[in-house]
């Protein structure tokens, strides 16, 4: 694609990538770094990528960058248990208050569960596309999503009981 088309991708997908990155890593600063690094990598390859493939390419890059960041900071979280404290940046411009139970439940999912659910519900990707972006099998994507939905239900029931 051309540099003009690259700039168009910035306009079209930067906000959505940032939202996806915040939900994935639950840290605005990290999410900002992840998005910037993703666009820098994309710029280096933009002449070899078609405009129609830009969105998938960028989400895949964000996902990989996030994985690399986790490995680098040794903040790998393979646990599916919901953390007791939300690691949210309360000084952010965006108000990340848990406005509804569903959003709180999402934060309690594991990184991979949250990522595939976000790609499914926020971006509308198919299971196959999610598998390509996250570089796992389609069957595995379906298992993660089934478990994520089951977890969300349990969390919501728990929240309702505590409320």
């Amino acid at each position: 694609m051309t540099s003009e088309e690259y700039n168009r991708t910035v306009e079209l997908f930067a906000d959505r990538l940032f939202r996806f990155a915040i939900k994935s890593c639950r840290n605005e600063a990290d999410a900002r770094d992840i998005v910037q690094q993703a666009f820098e990598k994309f710029w280096l390859k933009h002449q070899d990528v078609e405009f129609s493939k830009a969105k998938s390419y960028l989400f895949t890059t964000v996902h990989r960058t996030h994985i690399d960041m986790i490995r680098k900071n040794k903040r790998v979280s393979v646990m599916e248990e919901v953390p007791e404290q939300m690691d949210l940046n309360r000084n952010s411009h965006v108000n990340y208050e848990l406005r509804d139970s569903l959003s709180i439940a999402l934060d309690k999912l594991s990184d991979i569960q949250r990522r595939v659910v976000l790609l499914r519900d926020y971006e509308g990707y198919s299971y196959k596309e999610i598998a390509e972006i996250t570089e796992i099998s389609e069957s595995q994507v379906k298992v993660y999503i089934f478990r994520a939905r089951k977890k969300l239900q349990q969390i919501l029931i728990q929240i309702e009981k505590t409320a």
Partner: peptide
Amino acid sequence: LEPEVGVVF
């Protein structure tokens, strides 16, 4: 999940 609106990079 419903996509959050207002998240701006």
